[in-house]
Design a protein around this nucleic acid. Sequence first.
DNA 1: ATATTAATTGAACGTTCATTCAATATATTT
DNA 2: AAATATATTGAATGAACGTTCAATTAATAT
Lengths: 207, 207
Amino acid sequence: MGRKSLKETRRLEIIKVFYQVAKKEGYENTSIAKIAKVMDINPSLIIHYFETKEGLTYELIDHILDRYLLIYTVKNKEKATLSDLQSTIEMLFSKKWNLLFDDGLFYTFYALAFREKKIKQKYKFILDALRNGLALLIEQCNMQCITNVDDPKVAADFIFVMVDGAYFYLSMENDKKAYSERLAYYKQKAYELIGIPPTKALSDPVC
Amino acid sequence: MGRKSLKETRRLEIIKVFYQVAKKEGYENTSIAKIAKVMDINPSLIIHYFETKEGLTYELIDHILDRYLLIYTVKNKEKATLSDLQSTIEMLFSKKWNLLFDDGLFYTFYALAFREKKIKQKYKFILDALRNGLALLIEQCNMQCITNVDDPKVAADFIFVMVDGAYFYLSMENDKKAYSERLAYYKQKAYELIGIPPTKALSDPVC
DNA sequence: ATATTAATTGAACGTTCATTCAATATATTT
DNA sequence: AAATATATTGAATGAACGTTCAATTAATAT
């Protein structure tokens, strides 16, 4: 008996507002009081649900990293198609997935990982999951003779190195034309690496 | 007349202590008061020299980024040797240059660049300078027929994409063996890209 | 010595911070 | 309606923050 618990919905609400405020003003400028003000609730209510600001921060990081994984939406099927692989590559080298989460916050917490083990583990886990997802996809394409990649894990890793390295530099680039040209260049390299044609053109089996 | 100005030496001292404290405890946990305590001076003296904490922060960023450029030490000569190019590649893919500055702080300010134009400009400038330095080195080797790289700028950029992308992932990697193996793999790719042998083996001219 | 310039201190400011705790309000049960 | 569990408030805490300003100390000139 007693009142029905709103715990989970309330917590999610708070995290989302935390995310929005931090996105706008930066994590280090986002206080519990500010979040509470936006939500028009009392700051102590936030503490009531998260104990400490540290706890709240950890959950925001989870929230952001979970969204990162949304890159892989299509793939729960067992048989991957060429189009699946292509659209994944397109996704990785597009600006679309910058919409999934805020780049500045992603790097802010990434930097925090250097001092906080827990956060480092979270990031390691996500980065590995992303690589494994792509490797799996390539493996499936290998089995169907869509691709003939020697070592899918190595290939997937290399593609992500290019993605990460490219974005690292290009995030500081304001010239939009230069930005998309470079990105296209690395995308092409990725296509070459796994030996499939870009975009929609159909290809013959390679084995 | 009057007292001799200690301004520049004092400023540098403060920045260095700021760097050390921030390295240990993180930038967001480093207050002016803490810096002053370590130096055994009054906090207001720091304000006297830097006006605001923002000003102090900007100069710390400059300090770190300047150290970044120390990767290129050998190269003021006009004629680059194969060994120069090799040692540069070795440097880029080694852990040595992590000694030049703290990775965590480097990424902390990198993340800050997403919200602060001035910082973004600083980072863009440094990242470009690094790429240009390597491109210039390759060009010089081209002219002496040590290398025969099509487009030195593109090659240099690609090498840095690999460096940045590799470190981005590997900074979250605790397994030292996996760390160095992967790094060696990308280093090899870099050597292949510019078509020179790794380390010390002498090679014949390629043109 | 005296004037001058810069280094440095020390006290105080108002603000914001995360967190505490007791009190109150609101549902949902028996 | 009484009991109970949870939601929510509101006031208060002490600590830390960046910054200010006037006062003092110390060095270098004439």
